[in-house]
Design a protein around this nucleic acid. Structure first.
Length: 433
RNA sequence: GCGGUUGUAGUCAAGUGGUUAAGACACAGGAUUGUGACUCCUGCAUGCGUGGGUUCAAAUCCCAUCAGCCGCCCCA
């Protein structure tokens, strides 16, 4: 048997309603917050992510699905291969949106540009519950707004979205990771603090000391946590501008009535974040606890060859969202979908049934008929199993009299009526909705 | 990428070296000729994730491999 690739999922008809539901809710709220939908390709030039997400990040270093383009293969033969000639299945949503913003010169339109997207993402990781190789994200991005009210707006959107779905047990953690200026100062201070304590830190933290000292702050190792308890915090080293922005954000969140806790230790794994960083954490999810994460990225547009333009956004994991909803026993609408099922007896009545079912469908009635040569009784049982509102019996008696028998499956009431009285059926179906 | 753990039908499972692989749910058919739900009856794994090996004998032991789950790493 050929199996699906590891870490991917089929979404079957019985689950699709959950997806459609959250997608619709997300589209709705984005429209209310005045964000417009954007769709970008499933793959991009590899160089976009190397430059946008950051060459040193885990995502770029070891989790991307790269594929050589035809052009690259040709050039490779001619010994002219460049990394920009390979493609990568998008590992995250923001860099492609930024690319589209720049390439389509959206910065020249009225500002700010407020975009949202729904997209699959691909990362080559070891799968776990809540962590897949193909997963799906909702995301939004606001470009050209420097004000912290823009940060508060997207956080509010996520907050209201969750609450509408009845999720009120998430923790919102916010932090400011500063700009390149204050980060540089902070890095030095942090390294100075950690240097004499390296022996007390775990192996990975010692590696992180060299590659990305910020990450040591959210190590889960207890010994490391004790060691760094007194470590300097980024929030104490923010420059005036970043500090003012962070204060503005907190006031704005208070105004829009979003609860948060400041956690100076949250760090984001993508290089492009500046100033605001935040995540919504769930306790229903095990170790993959972040349902939604995002922040500000004031240098990214420039980094991707656009004009210097600030941005803020978030990514929201759809699979994780659905896991939370299931953990909270969320009731998805399970309305009857079939209005009418038609029961027939033999070749002749079946053909008449086909004619009739098509007439109903043309009028917008959800109708179906047996294709498995089932017995009369089995057809009835099937109609019941489908949860159909009405069952129509079409036998030789009915055909002879140009009539049908129509049974209401809920009340058991059965009536006879003229076969061409489709309008009456439509009326009955509408009534029972 | 690292460590741990699990893998018997569509689903949940019993079986831990011996002959025909329990049971439940689901599914399909039937209970006197054209009426569903309840009830009753019948059917449904030459097969135990896959491939090797040990043995007279393997779902059971060993090795490899694949997949799921948990933790780490990382992140949505």
């Amino acid at each position: 048997m050929i199996r699906k690739p590891r870490g991917t999922n089929d979404i079957l008809p019985e689950n699709i309603k959950e997806w459609l539901f959250v997608e619709n809710e997300f589209r709705k709220i984005c429209s209310e917050y005045n964000f417009g939908e954007i769709r970008t390709p499933m793959f991009e030039k590899t160089s976009l992510f190397k430059r946008g997400v950051g060459d040193t990040t885990d995502i770029v270093k070891k989790e991307m699905y790269n594929v050589l383009s035809d052009d690259a293969l040709y050039k490779y033969k001619n010994d002219k291969f460049k990394s920009s000639d390979s493609f990568t299945l998008k590992p995250e949503g923001t860099a492609p949106i930024v690319r589209a913003f720049v390439e389509n010169k959206l910065y020249a339109e009225k500002q700010p540009t407020k975009l949202f997207y729904i997209t699959p993402c691909f990362r080559h990781e070891r799968p776990q519950a809540g962590r897949l190789r193909q997963f799906h994200q909702f995301g939004i991005e606001t470009f050209s707004a420097t004000s912290a009210t823009a940060d508060a707006e997207i956080i509010s959107l996520a907050d209201v979205f969750f609450r509408r779905l009845g999720i009120d047990n998430l923790t919102l953690k916010i932090n400011s990771v500063g700009c390149s200026k204050c980060r540089e100062v902070y890095h030095k201070e942090l390294k100075k603090f950690l240097e004499p304590k390296l022996d007390d830190l775990c192996v990975t933290c010692n590696e992180r000391y060299i590659t990305n000292p910020l990450r040591i702050l959210d190590c889960k190792n207890e010994k490391c946590q004790n060691t760094i308890a007194e470590a300097p915090l980024i929030t104490d080293y923010l420059c005036d501008e970043c500090s003012a922005h962070f204060e503005e954000l907190k006031s704005a969140l208070d105004i829009v009535e979003v609860d948060y806790i400041v956690d100076p230790k949250i760090v984001r794994g993508l290089d492009y974040y500046t100033k605001t960083a935040f995540e919504f954490i769930s306790t229903d999810l095990g170790s993959q606890a972040t349902v939604c994460g995002g922040g500000r990225y004031n240098g990214l547009v420039k980094q991707v060859d656009g004009p210097e333009t600030p941005g803020v956004g978030f990514g929201l994991g759809i699979e994780r969202l659905l896991m939370v909803l299931k953990a909270r026993k969320f009731k998805f609408n399970d309305e009857k979908t079939l209005d009418v099922f038609i029961v027939t007896f033999d070749k002749e009545t079946k053909m008449k049934g086909m004619e009739f079912v098509t007439k109903l469908r043309k009028k917008g009635v959800a109708a179906d008929i047996d294709h498995l040569e089932r017995s009369f009784k089995a057809q009835f049982r099937y109609s019941d199993a489908l949860n159909s509102k009405y069952t129509i019996i079409l036998g030789s008696d009915e055909i002879e009299n140009n009539k049908i028998s129509l049974k209401n499956m809920k009340t058991g009431e059965q009536i006879e009526m003229q076969m061409d009285n489709i309008e009456k059926i439509i009326e009955l179906v509408r009534e029972s909705k």
